[in-house]
Design a binder for these strands. Structure first.
Length: 567
RNA sequence: GCCUGGGUAACUCAGCCUGGAUAGAGUGCCAGCCUUCUAAGCUGGAAGUCGCAGGUUCAAAUCCUGUCCCGGGCGCCA
């Protein structure tokens, strides 16, 4: 429609014999913030200098030259220096509703990314402690971006790299050896929580007895040399950690297509690095260590391999990038990792470039930290918000809210409170811009009112309730002029496909989240302003409600949030 | 010190890419609205030197420069 507006303006200016850049006109056309100012607007300031007239008079001239407005427009008005264009909104409503009704769950999809196959890696945890709130943000982002990319036509491989070896793992193991007394997971003690317990124990002990670090290093040595006892302990505890993660993933609604394990690949990056030495891009020092000199690029010097030939954090990532490419022939590779790792990925991508591995489509999807009012979360000190506990707690609170309102079976309460809790957590984590830090304030963040996940689900359930009670067929049929709230809702619904594209281009789920909220807010305003059932415009309003329900569902789907028919 | 992200209402955040009409929302506070489609809702109100100083422009929260404050990163840790 913007094109039509452009053509109209250009035609008028032609008649007025004014020469202006097409691009200048086009980029000036805007969408007013208020619906009462029309659907498109053209500010005439740009022309003031050229035409040597006050903007208001220019606007009047343009309007005069347009004559009668075409059918696509209901009206064209002058407001000070602005020419405001009003679309034929009834038409727009019909077209939008018809399209939603036809495309259903597919409304908003496009094929812009059809030639891409992307691997998205998340959350890639360490197996020495359970998942925490930061991992939940990671997973919410990873899943949402996967879905957004799929909606835009891409093929997505959801991958997970388990960081299951290294000194941090040995710390939990050592503590268990020393103080575990054969403790086992069981009722009331999730297996990964047990592992984490010993990681904290180790760290506390280390504070007063720094010497214990040597023991941990010895244990790592034993592990790398294949000591049977050590391997056995590692196998046991690693399984505990992984089993626990699996439960959390399922609970949070995350599924991976591919699992990688560091213990199986960490040695293999070595060959690739040695190739780089042969090529002369990396330097081997006298002690055998290998480094990559990036001083010219302002990235300093980075060691890629230790003097004793053992691997570093970056070593495995080099091989993994190669492996991903080989196994899946992907066109893009995304890493969902916190912004504290930005330096690491800059270096990694440069290394891969030098080695000729996967040059295009490498991207660190960097997101901000989740902080507490007291400051940063620290696993070592046990000051983290545990993922499982948080979900449980919010489920309990949701359960209470449900029971206040309705008497239903315990099973139904459980089902609903689970979905509400997840919606609350995911929405809280996704509505903030991906790159920004989140301040998690338990008292305020766990809320059911206002701009929250439960508010969205509630709006959906309300819409559903109307449709359930209606006996009539949903038909697009409107006889009278549309009301303000109806217009607002229609316009918002029609924006969805554009919003999907925008979030895809910027790889930012918060755009979808904010849209979901705005859409729901407009729906609730409409809901209060007008009766649906029994009204003169019942058929039309039912079709609006039905469209809203569909679009909100699609929007929430992109956030990884499941809807609830009743709340 | 260098690199990087941020500073908008009491609090938590949109808006900034692509400059335009009285700077928006939620929470909290004040005042209303449930015999009527779910009040987890809606309506109204109070609340803002858009960190600060320059610059560009008819027009700056938005672009540029400088500066102050806060976070993160600069390991042969992961």
């Amino acid at each position: 429609m913007k094109e039509e507006v452009f053509k109209l303006i250009k035609k008028s200016l032609g008649k007025l014999k004014v020469k202006v850049d097409d691009e200048k006109i086009n980029s000036s056309i805007e969408i007013p913030k208020e619906y009462s100012k029309g659907d498109y607007a053209f500010p005439c300031f740009v022309l003031a200098g050229i035409m040597k007239m006050p903007p208001h008079e220019i606007a009047l001239e343009i309007k005069r030259e347009m004559g009668n407005h075409p059918v696509d427009f209901e009206n064209i008005e002058i407001d000070g220096p602005y020419v405001n264009f009003f679309l034929n909104r009834k038409n727009l409503a019909f077209e939008t509703i018809k399209k939603i009704k036809k495309e259903k769950d597919g409304f908003g999809k496009n094929s812009d990314g059809k030639s891409e196959k992307t691997m998205i890696e998340f959350p890639s945890p360490n197996t020495n402690k359970p998942l925490h709130l930061g991992h939940l943000r990671n997973m919410a982002i990873g899943e949402s971006l996967s879905r957004i990319s799929e909606f835009n036509g891409e093929k997505i491989v959801r991958a997970n790299l388990n960081n299951d070896r290294g000194i941090h793992i040995c710390k939990s193991m050592l503590a268990y050896q020393k103080w575990g007394k054969g403790k086992k997971p069981g009722k009331g003690l999730k297996s990964d929580h047990l592992v984490g317990e010993f990681y904290v124990k180790y760290s506390k002990h280390e504070k007063e007895n720094p010497d214990i670090e040597k023991e941990a290093h010895d244990l790592l040595g034993k592990w790398e040399n294949g000591d049977k006892e050590t391997i056995k302990l590692w196998e046991k505890m690693n399984k505990w950690a992984l089993d626990g993660f699996k439960e959390t993933y399922e609970n949070f609604g995350i599924k991976h297509d591919k699992e990688y394990f560091e213990n199986k690949i960490y040695k293999k990056g070595k060959e690739l690095i040695l190739e780089g030495v042969k090529k002369g891009v990396f330097q081997q020092l006298e002690d055998g260590s290998i480094k990559f000199d990036l001083k010219k690029e302002g990235l300093g010097e980075k060691y890629l391999l230790r003097g004793d030939g053992t691997s570093l954090y970056i070593t495995q990532d080099i091989y993994l990038a190669y492996l991903k490419q080989k196994e899946f022939s992907i066109t893009k590779s995304y890493y969902v990792v916190g912004n504290e790792q930005e330096y690491h990925f800059k270096v990694l991508f440069r290394v891969l470039e030098e080695l000729g591995i996967q040059l295009k489509g490498l991207k660190h999807l960097s997101y901000g930290m989740v902080n507490l009012p007291e400051g940063k979360m620290k696993s070592r000190e046990g000051t983290v918000v545990d993922a499982d506990n948080l979900i449980n707690e919010i489920e309990k609170l949701s359960g209470k809210e449900i029971s206040k309102r309705e008497k239903i079976s315990a099973k139904e309460v459980e089902k609903r409170s689970h979905l509400i809790a997840l919606a609350g957590i995911k929405y809280m984590l996704l509505k903030i811009d991906i790159g920004k830090n989140i301040l998690f304030n338990p008292k305020e963040s766990i809320s059911f009112e206002g701009n929250t996940g439960p508010y969205l689900l509630y709006s959906y359930a309300r819409a559903n309730s109307i449709l359930k009670k209606s006996k009539k067929e949903v038909n697009v049929n409107l006889s009278e002029k549309m009301e303000e709230k109806e217009i607002n809702l229609t316009l918002k619904l029609s924006e969805f496909p554009e919003v999907v594209k925008r979030s895809y281009k910027s790889l930012n789920p918060s755009i979808i989240a904010n849209y979901s909220y705005e859409l729901s807010k407009i729906f609730n305003e409409f809901y209060h302003a007008h009766d649906v059932l029994g009204s003169k415009e019942e058929e039309f309003r039912l079709s609006l409600v039905d469209s809203f329900k569909q679009v909100l569902k699609n929007s929430l789907y992109l956030l990884g949030i499941d809807v609830l028919e009743k709340m």
